[in-house]
Structures are given as structure tokens and as C-alpha cells.
């Protein structure tokens, strides 16, 4: 086991280096000059341009810039935004909880709904119930979520007026952000109605972000269940006269869970990709929106640092999933 963990960690180092090279070089390749944008429509004089380039260290040889960047990374310095002049890491740490909260709620939602739906469809295989569950799942899986988000806003916020349009909590409530998770902070604050407000703000974005993982989990659960239900031991259990609930709930589901858990782990990347769109639509102050905005603002430093940080998160999550998987299923360690 130790060797397995060590091996996985060793692999991370070249990947990390590669990621840093990509993030760094991408940004140098971006067309458009962030310094130019500082003054908007007003044209900047060439002298002043040179001066600012120098001040930002953008006029040094590329390898020196990279080396500086790398040493910065090792000391936790991800650079400073060109637009806001704030350290990238500060912004990331402030915004990441919002994304995490949204992603967490989405995955819980997807699991809580997806697994039972998949099990149900598998058990009732071939019936209209199975077909409709799988039909809906396939629609969800095919959904352009940016459009889906707009439709939900038009209907639930615009037409029915049930849910708030965007943001994380009503402006009525204000309390210190202890954890950065609105649901938890609102409870800690002890303000009446704050938690409820936070929940209503979360519903639509969660639904949108959960749509694809939900469909994937339901489909995956169904096929894993079908496979397991066909295996000998389940048949035996059935033949022994165990109640269907025990057969499905205990024997089959437990074994069907291994591929499903992998699937869930793999959804992290999907969630972060989805967060880019979801957050943009709902003005959710998370890292997805932050990245999109920064790309458009040509904020070199933020895109670069953000790519690094996000890739880092994904790498860590993948590692954990890998390790968990290796722990559950010792065969794949080799």
C-alpha cells in the first residue's frame, strides 16, 4: 500500500511541472496586451507602456520569468492580478468555498437522486418506468446546461417568482464568513431565516450543476446493478428466498457501488467544468466565473495562477479517488 501511495505521488511531480509549464506558456501566448487594457480607450504612450512592462517584470527573458514563477509557486506565491492588484491566492481562497459549496450540494443531490433512480430502473428493467427514468437521464445527459440554467431562471425566478435570481444569500443577512460555506455560516450566525435564504439561493444553481452528474450516475448505477443482478451469488441469494430488499439493497448494491464510486470521483472535473457555465449564469461568486472573467479581462496572472490552483485541486482529488479505489479494490494496485 505504501509503495502504491508513493508511486502515485511520484507521478504527481512531473504532472505538476507540466501543468505549470502549460499554465505559464499559455499565458505568454495569449494575444492582447494586458498593460494596454489598463488605460482602456485612451492610448498609452510607448514610453509608459515600456515602463509598466518593466515594472511588472514582463520584459525579462521568458525562462527567468518562468523560474521566478516556479519558485514563487513553491513558496505559495501565485502572483498578483494585473487588474485588481490583489494576490491570486487570496482571491482563490475567498472564492473557492463558494464553488465547493455549490459542487458539494450538486454531487449530493446527484447521488441521492441518481443512485435510487438507477437501482429502481435496474430492478424494474424493461418496464415503462425503466424506460422513462433512462429517457429522462439521457435528456439530462444531453442537456446544454447553460441553456437549461436560462430556462430555469425564466420559469422559476421570472414567471413563478419562487427562487431568487442570483447570488448566495439575501442582502438582508450579513454575518462574518467563518467557513466560507454559506449554509454553515448562516447557521453559525444564528440569524433567523438566514439558512433558509441560503438554501433558496442554492436550489437553481445546484439543479443545473447536478444535471449531468445525476444523469451519469443514474445510468452508471443502472448498468452496474444489471451486471450484478445477473451474477450467480445474487441468483443464489434470491433462490435462498431472501427478501428482494435484502438482495437488492445489501448484496447487489454493495457490489455495484465500486464502479459508481469511481464515476462519482470522475465527476469532479465535470463539476468544475460545469461550474464555469453555471456560475456565469447565476452570478455565483466562485472560481469558475472568476476564471471566465479573467480570461476576458486578459488578466494574465489570474488565469495562470487559477489554472495552476484548479489543476492542483483536480490532481489531488484524482489522487484521493485513486487511493480510495486501491484501498477498496486491492487488485488494481499493481
Amino acid at each position: 500500500m505504501f509503495r502504491f501511495i508513493f508511486g502515485r505521488l511520484a507521478v504527481l511531480i512531473p504532472t505538476f511541472l507540466g501543468v505549470s509549464i502549460i499554465a505559464f506558456s499559455f499565458i505568454r501566448l495569449l494575444p492582447g496586451d494586458p498593460v494596454m487594457l489598463m488605460s482602456g480607450e485612451r492610448v498609452m504612450s510607448p514610453e509608459r507602456h515600456t515602463q509598466i512592462m518593466h515594472q511588472l517584470g514582463l520584459d525579462r527573458p521568458i525562462y527567468i520569468q518562468y523560474f521566478d514563477y516556479l519558485t514563487g509557486l513553491l513558496t505559495g506565491d501565485f502572483g498578483s492580478s494585473i487588474v485588481t492588484k490583489r494576490p491570486v491566492l487570496d482571491d482563490f481562497l475567498q472564492l473557492f468555498p463558494a464553488t465547493l459549496e455549490l459542487a458539494f450540494c450538486a454531487i449530493i443531490f446527484a447521488v441521492l437522486l441518481g443512485i435510487p433512480a438507477g437501482v429502481f430502473a435496474a430492478v424494474k428493467r424493461g418496464t415503462w418506468l425503466d424506460q422513462s427514468i433512462m429517457g429522462v437521464a439521457l435528456i439530462g445527459y444531453s442537456m446544454p446546461i447553460f441553456w437549461w440554467g436560462l430556462l430555469l431562471i425564466i420559469f422559476f425566478s421570472g414567471y413563478l417568482g419562487w427562487t431568487p435570481v442570483s447570488g448566495r444569500i439575501s442582502f438582508m443577512y450579513f454575518f462574518p464568513q467563518v467557513t466560507g460555506f454559506m449554509l454553515i455560516d448562516s447557521l453559525i450566525s444564528g440569524q433567523a431565516g438566514a439558512f433558509k435564504s441560503a438554501v433558496t439561493y442554492l436550489i437553481l444553481p445546484t439543479t443545473v450543476l447536478a444535471t449531468i452528474p445525476l444523469a451519469v450516475i443514474a445510468r452508471q448505477t443502472r448498468s452496474a446493478m444489471l451486471e450484478v443482478l445477473g451474477e450467480d451469488y445474487v441468483r443464489t441469494a434470491r433462490a435462498k428466498g431472501l427478501s428482494p430488499f435484502r438482495v437488492i439493497g445489501v448484496h447487489a448494491l454493495r457490489n455495484a457501488m465500486i464502479p459508481v464510486i469511481t464515476t462519482i470521483g470522475l465527476q469532479v472535473g465535470v463539476l468544475l467544468a460545469g461550474a464555469i457555465l453555471t456560475e456565469s449564469i447565476f452570478s455565483w461568486p466562485g472560481i469558475g466565473k472568476w476564471m471566465v472573467d479573467s480570461v476576458f479581462k486578459r488578466d494574465y496572472a489570474v488565469v495562470q495562477g487559477g489554472l495552476m490552483l484548479i489543476a492542483g485541486v483536480i490532481m489531488i482529488v484524482n489522487l484521493v479517488v485513486d487511493l480510495l479505489y486501491g484501498w477498496i479494490n486491492p487488485r488494481i494496485r499493481h
Binding site: V11, P14, T15, G18, V19, I22, F26, L29, L30, P31, G269, V270, L272, A273, G274, A275, I276, L277, G288, M291, V292, V295, V303, L307, I310, A311, I314, M315, N318
Partner: peptide, 24 residues
Amino acid sequence: MRIMDIILAFPSLLLALVLVAVLG
């Protein structure tokens, strides 16, 4: 496979977005 790992370490849409920003 290391290179593929690197590509997969980014959320696909984000990577595509930045790539398009680079390429125009």
C-alpha cells in the same frame, strides 16, 4: 501518459476556453 495526465488535470471546458483565448 504523463502528457495526457497533464491535459486531464484541467477541467476540459476551462482548458478549451483558455486555448481558444490563446488562439483567438
